[in-house]
Design a protein around this nucleic acid. Structure first.
Lengths: 224, 224
DNA sequence: GCGATAGTTCGGCTACGATCGAAGCATGAA
DNA sequence: TTCATGCTTCGATCGTAGCCGAACTATCGC
């Protein structure tokens, strides 16, 4: 077998506290600058620059320059998925202190996972979409004709999503709920729409804060 | 956020080549001794013993003594899931050499994932079980009445499985197929039955070698 | 041109951890 | 008991990798 070195090189990159902090700071899907990531990791900018160069070389991150800034983001949702898996492991093995503060409650209720919704509300949404037969399939999910029509009425053009290379529907394991929620291009479009409509706004970190009327509108729209 | 240290401590454990080799050697679900794991990792026994003590303390492994042997196995399928996720990442980022030898083909066709089946055949089985409405649900899978009857006739008592603490059905992402297959207590029972009936036997490493009549019987039984 | 800000590269320090030899404990066999 | 096997602990060595200060490059605004 000896496939150890292959996975260890990647695990080792995640195994440094500074890099792990950077990666989890990027888990909300936003792109951050070197300076911001250095602050998140608690190291100087030079150190952060070195770490980021390694993560970039290993293709765990992708970067783009804008003027004198350089923005980093996760290279894909599979990176986020592994990070969530590690968090789940940390929870089960008791390596994590269960701080159940108000921020934690907010996080469990609704948060951003890479570029789509996660948490109780996202899991409920996923269940409702299946319930109404708007999506189908076990693992490679697909929109039904009814679902296509519904999202068209909601203002999301499915055709445009399908022209991209990214899968439209993708199930993503939810760290806190231990059930799936919707990722993929459609998941991203839903989150974008929710924010654009003012139903929710991004709070600190990964928290997604729904307004009371926004929450009602969300539930009514998707029949929760 | 600063949840970095939590995940980094676990990732760091997987980030050492020797430990990663041991973990991937354990991915077939078998329990191995210190000596066997030392040989798999290519280190001396003392070194291996130290590594195993760490993995055990972090609850990634569990151990049991039998006479003067000490057997280690993965502490749960969630550990295997993270390892599979890392392999998938390694594949996408190109950190892995794609050796497509005969052994690799066999591995893709059918292999053991912790204690249940994986590979093409397992993914096909999972699809068939859904197709026939023997299992249902999106993420927290459940057996239907028909499925319960079928497995009873097959010789697997579902009632006994349900009395355990382990979930009966659990979907597990397949590393090579990028789709789900069936894990959980039922998945384990199916693999055990397949081996007991002589339909397949465990080859080198994780390979699961079906005999020609065994493959036909398997397909006929599950309607593939 | 100048200064200011953002990021990279270099060099040296430091510390942690992987490794193995050797000795120490258990368990099982004779 | 005595010996052999399987594993653990101790101690010392050695590399590697993280870290920061300092110098360097690039972009922006003036």
């Amino acid at each position: 077998m000896k496939e150890g070195p292959v996975i260890s090189s990647i695990a080792a990159l995640m195994g440094d506290p500074a890099r792990a902090n950077m990666l989890s700071a990027l888990m909300d899907g936003r792109a951050l600058t070197v300076t911001e990531l250095a602050s998140a990791a608690g190291v100087t900018i030079q150190t952060a620059s070195g770490h980021l160069a390694k993560l970039d070389a290993a293709k765990l991150l992708k970067s783009e320059r804008q003027g004198r800034h350089r923005y980093f983001r996760l290279s894909g949702d599979d990176v986020g998925a592994v990070l969530e898996g590690l968090m789940a492991l940390a929870q089960r093995t008791g390596a994590v202190r269960v701080r159940t503060g108000p921020k934690d409650t907010a996080l469990r209720h609704a948060r951003v996972c890479y570029d789509h919704m996660a948490g109780e509300r996202a899991v409920a949404l996923f269940g409702a979409l299946r319930e109404k037969d708007w999506i189908e399939g076990d693992d490679d999910l697909a929109l039904t004709a009814a679902g296509r029509a519904f999202f068209g009425g909601f203002g999301i053009g499915v055709g445009a999503l399908e022209s991209g290379r990214r899968p439209v529907c993708r199930s993503c394991l939810d760290w806190s709920e231990r059930r799936s929620h919707l990722g993929g291009a459609l998941g991203a479009a839903i989150l974008a729409s929710v924010i654009e409509r003012g139903w929710a706004r991004r709070g600190q970190g990964r928290v997604l804060a729904f307004t009371p009327p926004g929450a009602r509108a969300f539930d009514a729209t998707f029949g929760l």
